[in-house]
Design a protein around this nucleic acid. Structure first.
Lengths: 83, 83
DNA sequence: ACTAAATGCAGACTATAGTCCGTGGAGCGG
DNA sequence: CCGCTCCACGGACTATAGTCTGCATTTAGT
């Protein structure tokens, strides 16, 4: 199905923004332990959760999904990964 | 959150392929009544369900999500909205 | 009018998304 | 060593995704 896990993409984006799991959870209105479960791929989010996380991580949800499909595509040239 | 419902996009794609709810459900490995619930936005799918439906409807999941964003959503001064 | 396909919908389920408590361990600065 | 932050993890929840069965209604064809 998905080539790359949702949680892996989320963790990468979270660390890229220098957020702790707890801080991300708070800003998303989700539970701290649930973010942990997501990153370890022990839960599958609904698309509503995808949208919530995308807002906080400042990425378009479709871009988030796109990153799950392909490992190497020249994402960004570091354009929106920095900050 | 989403401007356009998941179910609305799914129904449009389903009809575009001339499939009944039952046929779509069968090909997705989902229940017929659940497809009905999704189209009426009485349920929110997980991303796994998004992927299943996308395969059958022959659309990339990120494109599916993108079609939910008909209205503009602003994530921080258009830094990654372009492209 | 009759038939059949397609869908809405209700109810009672099962599986899992998501919460809320806590504990313990790894890492790090003082 | 001590305190602090971050995170993995457990257990016991609550909410909701998703199934299954059955029936009623609508729509289109003949």
């Amino acid at each position: 199905m998905e080539e790359r896990a949702f949680g892996s993409v989320m963790q990468e984006l979270r660390k890229g923004k220098g957020l702790s799991q707890e801080e991300l959870a708070f800003r998303c209105g989700l539970d701290r332990t649930y973010i942990s479960l997501l990153e370890r791929s022990l839960r599958v989010p609904t698309i509503v959760t995808l949208f919530k996380v995308s807002v906080v991580l400042e990425i378009r949800p479709e871009e988030f999904i796109a990153r799950m499909n392909v490992q190497d595509r020249n994402y960004g040239e570091g354009s929106h990964l920095d900050q």
